[in-house]
Amino acid sequence: MANFKALLFGGPSSLPDHERTQFVTSLTEKVKHRLGAGYEHFVHDGEFTTVDGEEVAVFRWAARTAVAE
């Protein structure tokens, strides 16, 4: 199973910088990141950027959903 380095872009400013870089197993599935009482959803549209000489997939913020009670 391949791991891709991903950068979470956009969304709430309360999402700490150190949580914006993650490893994902798929570029076609949403990244669902828990933050507070909800989930921030990020999607990849084919964009990549270079960070410290490494190519990283850019996942842009798409939506927020609440945690089910």
Rank of each mutant, 00 (worst) to 15 (best):
N3D: 14
N3T: 10
K5E: 13
A6D: 00
L7M: 07
L7V: 07
L7H: 04
L8K: 04
F9K: 12
G11Q: 14
G11F: 13
G11W: 15
P12W: 06
P12L: 06
S13V: 03
S13E: 11
S14C: 04
L15H: 00
L15W: 00
L15I: 03
P16L: 01
D17H: 10
H18S: 02
H18I: 00
E19V: 13
E19L: 11
E19R: 09
E19C: 06
E19S: 01
E19G: 00
E19W: 08
R20F: 07
T21W: 03
T21H: 10
T21V: 11
Q22A: 10
F23W: 15
F23Y: 14
F23K: 15
T25Q: 15
S26I: 03
S26R: 05
L27W: 03
L27T: 14
T28E: 14
K30W: 06
V31T: 03
K32H: 03
K32D: 14
K32G: 12
H33P: 04
R34E: 02
R34K: 06
R34G: 04
L35H: 05
A37S: 15
A37W: 08
G38K: 06
Y39R: 09
E40W: 00
E40F: 01
H41V: 02
H41E: 05
F42P: 03
D45E: 14
E47F: 05
F48K: 09
T49V: 12
T49Q: 09
T49P: 12
D52I: 04
G53V: 13
G53I: 13
E54S: 04
E54L: 02
E55L: 14
E55V: 15
E55Y: 15
E55Q: 15
V56Q: 02
V56Y: 00
V56N: 02
V56I: 09
V56D: 02
